[in-house]
Amino acid sequence: MFEARLVSSGTLKKVLDAIKDLLNEASFDCSDTGIQLQAMDSSHVSLVSLSLRADGFDKYRCDRNLTMGMNLASMTKILKCANNDDTVTVKAQDDADCVTFVFESKKQEKISDYEMKLMNLDQEHLGIPETDFSCVIHMPSGEFSRICRDLSQFGESVIISCTKEGVRFSSSGDIGSANIKLAQTNNIDKEEETVSIDLQEPVTLTFACQYLNSFTKATPLSNRVSLSMSANVPLVVEYEIPDLGHIRYYLAPKIEE
């Protein structure tokens, strides 16, 4: 038996919004420690790694490890049927071929359940090596989202250049060019608004705007984001989901010809 309950359906909706741009379907691996999802997009340019801890749920039970392959468009249809403040319970029997979503309104006057067929997805599990990054940037997630959106008007790529002075995001194309520089801040009063850089050595890498914009769909999950970069390895964009887990996106850099 698997059962996981969240007081707010809105949280699950946000998690789904954060992955459905990149993935059409995904396997949710459930164990007694929580729910994990790891999948590359179809072009093998980006990877999504989601972790939701068992103790982050209001109720969590997983008697046997279970992999639930879900079509994310179908899951989206079902979650649209929930109000954000409904409680959601995800249930499945061991070896089940379907999963049930139960939505309960605040006052319990409305209880609805939706059953969805599970898919057998032939997904490989990947070992992600531990990397000592040359630089790690922590910044407000809304600011990162804004920068990605603004720069994608100019070109298909963003160059991220990190030095001890700060981080520069640049893009150029037919209409011209754009540069956004962020300096490190030392505003302890508003910790949420700070930009901080842990730098071992300067790094400059180029990434596709399209993927960065997809990653920023996780912005409603967290008001902070971190960008970890080293030369010639994938960028890691991480959003901590408060009291529940994290979502990490890996993106292969563009290669100069």
């Binding site: 093998h44 990947l126 070992g127 090596p129 890996y250 292969a252 563009k254 290669i255 010809e257």
Partner: peptide, 14 residues
């Protein structure tokens, strides 16, 4: 000009 890299090769298949 630049080409899009892929993730294959960065991660080990378990």
């Amino acid at each position: 000009t630049s080409t899009q890299g892929r993730l294959d090769g960065f991660f080990k298949v378990l």
